[in-house]
Nucleic acid binder design. Structure first.
Lengths: 348, 348
DNA sequence: GCGCCGCTGGCAACCGCATTCCCGCAGCGA
DNA sequence: TCGCTGCGGGAATGCGGTTGCCAGCGGCGC
């Protein structure tokens, strides 16, 4: 055959037809053998098809399959940023769970731009995945969320499932951490260690989950009879740098009064630490610091960071479960979060 | 119409046909308007089509488009792990460049299992992307690489492009850092700071790029007349924990002689630091430490880590360029890497 | 020995979109 | 006014795979 000499030029990919022909069966039969079908095929034929497929190096054209079936075994994950340790840990957890469920996952990154988020969702809709999981914390301000909601609604109407993680602002299936309770417990533990004068760093951007952490912390302090906490709450830009700058621009007097800084994320806690150090403050001797998220890659920070641990795997599992179980309506589910005390808050 | 009352049950997604019908044009015309076609369409019709599409919330079915066109604007990125800061930074860089080039990127994670890697490549082949970029450091040992090579070859034969990052062991387009030169320059700088007695941490798994870092470092020391360096090279497991354990199980006498530990990755350098600290060694006063990769998320480590900076964006750009430019053969390209001295190596 | 049923393979239609080809039409020059 | 050219719309076909349906075959019961 010309097989032997034809090594140049892009050859056409091997199709199911090729396999069928080589195995001497019809194309539907080959399809039934190679791609999970309910119908049985005679063992001898099955064997021939499998062999032919292997010899030819056949791979199912997943696009064609998706078109024909009208659906795919893929779930789409939308996150804010891939190099953010929180999101990458989340993505890893989701992928782990998805693999267990025999699902592919395709990741899309919004880069924290909500226009991009909308664009991505539209594009994803074009892929007709089984489900869309939105793990990015939504930024309410910039663009009309209704457009996004519309888009997601449309997607749901055509049989897709939408799952939100840590984002209770949209009317879809939601899985989130117990931000309020986690922060509250943390506050109580810290109060138990003798801390009394706190500085809280929230998010300048309106983020529901983040505000819950602030509220929970304040609530926890109130539980312990510390009621003046709400005086010292800052809302800098929601980032490492935002936290650092907030600390750096603090009045000297104000800073001197602070015993402990609680930031709503580990990332911001690190920014706060950087800011504190640039002002010559020693941690934890002068000021203690606590964060939220318990990010693994921060294990090497010195002093080790007191924070609130969130069960990513549980959240991921719940999310995948909701993504794959259709019909039922779960509404909102909350996963526990609990404080982890480390060296950055040794107590007074 | 029944439109008004039919709000229950999965409705069929809006297709191009629906749009065409509503706009009162033929389906090809709608196609030409909505998806980039060479042919022009009358402005009035174009308008009608666009409006109809918007009103109906039409989204191109990308799978169908891929089937019809036989190709897609997607590139597939294969990395070892998503929560590894190095890979997530790499992925972020690739996505940035891809977006500039108007490409989608779908990420697949091997979890460092080479069987999974093979499986993924087969699956990816089924998606018929424009290109496959393999950024994971290959693990040569476990499975016959030829199978992977076969698979990639097949993919190339059907018009796809394969690009490898930091992985010079396979016969495809390759972009990598100048590991050797980067490490060599670092060694020379450190020698210039007065360090003389080094401990090197390599990779127990055979990884070409990683070995180059060791070789380059040794070479650099030799440049400075330090020739006995090769005595103190350890090859622990290629991970944070591997490095930590290697340090912890060091003989007391051996440890006492060490002035500086060079690890082939920042990750391992951190493991080494953890190990050193657990043995009561102060950094950098007793022992200095240097790594490789210059991972951004480690900015908060104290003391800040001396390392070798790699230009991720340049690598990503080169990779995308190779992924999109067909016909030409680029073979192997090297991107510079240069040392960055920080607090972890103050000099003797 | 006949009829019925169940099993399994193949035919053909179909999924949603792109593209080729054909044809009508307007515009232009002669 | 006629013919030619060029543009743009539409019918038909194809992409790779799936699935409803029919037909043929073998097994079984009576």
């Amino acid at each position: 055959m010309s097989e032997t000499l034809g090594d140049a030029g892009p050859r056409r990919p091997v199709t199911l037809d090729d396999v069928a022909r080589r195995a001497g069966v019809s194309q539907p039969t080959a399809s039934r053998v190679l791609n999970g079908s309910a119908r049985k095929v005679n063992e001898a034929l099955r064997e021939r098809v499998v062999t032919a497929a292997r010899e030819l190096g056949y791979t199912t054209n997943l696009s064609a399959q998706a078109v024909a079936r009208g659906t795919s075994r893929t779930i789409a994950l939308v996150i804010s940023g891939i190099s953010d340790p929180y999101f990458s840990a989340m993505a890893a957890a989701i992928m782990r769970q998805a693999e267990l469920a025999g699902l592919r996952v395709s990741i899309a990154v919004t880069d924290r731009r909500s226009d991009r988020e909308l664009e991505l969702v539209r594009e994803i809709r074009g892929h007709q995945p089984l489900a869309i999981i939105l793990a990015g914390t939504g930024f309410l301000a910039p663009h009309p969320e209704d457009t996004l909601v519309d888009e997601l609604r449309r997607y749901e109407e055509t049989g897709g499932r939408v799952v939100l993680i840590s984002r209770t602002d949209l009317p879809f299936e939601t899985v989130s951490f117990d931000n309020h309770e986690g922060a509250r417990q943390l506050a109580r533990e810290l109060a138990g260690l003798g801390y009394r004068r706190f500085l809280l760093l929230g998010s300048g951007t309106a983020l529901l989950g983040m505000q819950q952490r602030i509220d929970g912390f304040v609530h926890g302090l109130a539980d312990e009879g510390i009621s003046h906490a709400a005086d010292r709450i800052l809302y800098p830009e929601f980032s490492w740098d935002g936290a650092r700058r907030a600390i750096e621009s603090l009045e000297e007097d104000t800073l001197r009064e602070v015993e402990l800084v609680f930031a709503i994320t580990d990332d911001m806690a690190l920014g706060a630490i950087a800011g504190l150090r640039s002002r010559g403050v020693s941690i934890p001797d002068d000021v203690a610091v606590a964060g939220f998220d318990d990010i693994t890659t921060l294990r090497d920070i010195v002093p080790s960071l007191t924070t609130v641990h969130v069960a990513l795997d549980t959240v991921a599992e719940e999310a995948i479960h909701r993504a794959t179980t259709d019909g039922e309506v779960f509404t909102r589910k909350t996963v526990p979060a609990y404080p982890v005390l480390r060296e950055s808050t040794p107590g007074v």
